[in-house]
Amino acid sequence: MESSEIVLTSHLGIRRRFGLGCFQAVNYGALTLVMAAFWAILWTLVRGSLPAWHWSTWFTVSQGLGGGLANAIVGTLWLSCLTLLLVVPMGIATATYVLIYASPRMKQLTLLVSDVLAGVPSIVFGYVGYIVLVIALGFGFSALAAAVTLAAMVLPYMVRTSYLALVEVPSAVREQALALGFSRAQIIWSIMWAGARRGIIGGAILSIAIAMGETAPLIYTASWSDSLPSLALTHHSVGYLTYVVWTFIQQPYPQAIALAYMAGLILVLLVGAMAVLGRAIRA
């Protein structure tokens, strides 16, 4: 046997060892950098919000530049619910229509338009939403104007996630149902939507997570309010968390600044939790 020739130790030459060392160094460097950036952001929020860590923050509304966050939290949830009501039917319907009824060209065009919409800057939605909904249609600063604007903005995400969920339903199952005499409407209801339920719910949660973190489309549609949102859809402005972050942080009052940090922290945790939840449900 040639066992004497076979050496299994210290195989790499200087060049390869150097290359490997550099590769590992920059990779672990990148790891350290991201961990540092992430903790820096989180730590900034936690430390800054400490003065506002009190029950009253959650249960009192804001007064001028002080008070609590109750109106902003409820407002964010209220706007999210309205957005959800608007965007989910549109998203599912669009995805279903292109999958079941549309011609291949129509399908491609719709998905392209939807994807292109995802690239429109959010302030453009805010601008048009303000001029058209708030002023021209006379909604005033209101939950409805804000929700319609947000819904238009997150529509492409809802369409894409619904489409991906519906495509996952095997076409063989669809054909089987067709062969059993199901009508198309029955197939959509009892096969497609039932089968894609998880993916669609996950997509809706992800879409809402995106909507919650937005500011630019809301400034000129929901405006801001110091009181809890009423159920009125029009002519009543609504408070929301992102507004607190961007205005209160620039104030000279420590109380306002603490509230801004607190709002930022709540947003990060809320959006992060929903993103994780949405992804878990879809997976």
């Binding site: 991201v34 950036a37 992430f38 820096a40 952001i41 900034t44 929020l45 997570a209 919650m212 973190g213 937005e214 500011t215 992102t242 972050v245 961007w246 942080i249 801004a260 940090y261 930022g264 947003l267 990060v268 959006v271 992060g272 993103a275």
Partner: peptide
């Protein structure tokens, strides 16, 4: 997670 952080929070930071 960082991709999901709202842009105002980056602004704050």
């Amino acid at each position: 997670m960082m991709a999901g952080v709202p842009s105002v929070v980056f602004g704050l930071f």
